[in-house]
Design a protein around this nucleic acid. Structure first.
Length: 402
DNA sequence: AGTCCACAGGAAGGGCAGGCGA
DNA sequence: TCGCCTGCCCTTCCTGTGGACT
């Protein structure tokens, strides 16, 4: 395409009426002033954290709820209000928010201590120091804060599953050793049963208070979508029923508001790309399909090389024979492909772990099955649509020149 | 009831890259 | 530069397991 053609394309794009007025309102980054259907949770949260304003340590708090139920949104909202309110009081209040699922930020004990210390203004290298030393620096930084520190640990379930609960144990006991500062922990978890993994002492001191965020129903999702789309979309571009459909689809998937917003945003983007003046129902279906495929492709793309090759092997076998596969067969095929691709062959033990990881990511299904005399193995199956499998297979095939 | 299969999966440790302080 | 520390990926060694078969 010549430069002139490109310029024409951009000019045309600029002149075109957009279906969006303000697309940012449909992203999770947007913090609405008025949070719908969460009044009870917000006032409970506020009353639990309010003692911080008078320099007392609030009870530790545990918040549960599935993805997209507004936990993080409400906590951030209340924290913002607290920060605002504390300006009128002599208390020194520091609120730290950390997402424990963020890779390379808070997924190990070292990184978590280091990040917390950094949030308190302490300089800590990303590696190189003994973990105890980092913890000491964090402790000292806390002591220097004085008054109250609230530590919000989002996706705390991911942290405990990865590194265990010993760090949390120390954190919940830290008030016994601090003289000038009081610390309160707010844990946010997507997994309602995750405290089963924890030591009972940690469990009881961490969940002095608990708040549960139930999933939104279709009606509530509809209200939330309406609130956001009113300003996000140009007047009248949404076909009748589009909002209801997005709400219904998201409600059937654990009442996830994030999903509902994604659906309507992607539907808008697809309509705009096809030069349609209106976002019709068919774009919601297309959006549903696109989100699923994109999520899958992105997950696969971020896997290490060996996992990709293993996945290639599994998909290849799935396309050739369909049905269920077992670890032994997959491993034999994997070795051949590793040879062809000129890659190192991992041991079966390692491949077994990689199969578990792919299963956890939802890319494949792997169930342990005992076949009596014929041994115990994992039965592996692929539930994805043929289109998705072909897409990913060709993407991986190109990467390995297979 | 005992055997045996084909692994699952826990534990321990090796090797590597990256980073720090002396 | 060297010694030390970390996280990460991997191997080796090992015990455990559910149910078909004998």
């Amino acid at each position: 395409m010549s430069d002139n053609n490109l310029q024409d394309m951009f000019t045309e794009y600029l002149e075109k009426e957009s279906v969006f007025q303000n697309k940012d309102l449909l992203t999770t980054k947007h913090q609405p002033d008025d949070i719908l259907h969460r009044d009870d949770q917000i006032s409970e949260l506020a009353s639990i954290l309010a003692p911080a304003l008078k320099g007392n340590d609030p009870s530790n708090l545990f918040i549960y709820g599935t993805v997209g139920t507004g936990k993080t949104l409400c906590v951030n909202h209340v924290c913002d209000e607290l920060r605002e309110a504390v300006k009128q009081s002599p208390t020194n209040l520091k609120i730290i928010y950390l997402n424990c699922k963020m890779k390379k930020v808070a997924d190990t004990e070292y990184r978590l201590s280091a990040q917390l210390a950094r949030e308190l203004g302490e300089e800590v290298p990303s590696t190189g120091l003994p973990t105890d030393e980092v913890y000491d620096r964090f402790f000292q930084a806390l002591e220097d804060q004085e008054d109250v520190v609230i530590i919000v640990l989002d996706e705390i379930d991911a942290l405990v599953k990865k590194i265990g609960d010993s760090f949390l144990y120390n954190l919940t006991r830290i008030n016994d050793d601090l003289e000038k500062t009081k610390v309160s922990i707010v844990g946010i978890s997507n997994d309602l049963n995750f405290t089963d993994y924890m030591d009972s002492r940690v469990k009881s001191s961490l969940s002095e208070e608990e708040i549960i965020f139930p999933p939104y129903n279709a009606l509530e999702l509809k209200n939330i979508l309406r609130q956001r789309t009113d300003e996000a979309f140009t007047d009248g571009v949404l076909e009748e029923g589009v909002i209801s459909k997005c709400a219904a689809l998201a409600a059937s998937e654990h009442g996830d508001a994030r999903r509902a917003l994604d659906l309507i945003r992607v539907a808008g983007e697809l309509a705009e790309r096809s030069d349609e003046p209106e976002v019709s129902m068919e774009y919601v279906d297309a959006a549903q399909d696109k989100i699923e495929k994109d999520r899958l492709k992105e997950t696969v793309r971020s896997q290490p090389k060996q996992s990709k090759l293993l996945l290639y092997t599994i998909f290849d076998e799935h396309q050739a024979n369909g049905g269920k596969m077992v670890t032994g067969d997959i491993y034999a095929n994997y070795k051949e492909y590793a040879d062809q691709a000129g890659m190192k062959t991992l041991t079966q033990r390692r491949i077994s772990d990689l199969i578990s990881e792919l299963d956890m990511l939802g890319i494949i299904n792997a169930k342990v099955r005992s076949k009596g005399r014929y041994g115990r193995t994992r039965e592996i199956s692929v539930d994805l649509s043929d289109g998705s499998v072909e897409d990913i297979q060709s993407m991986l095939g190109e990467a390995f020149y297979l």
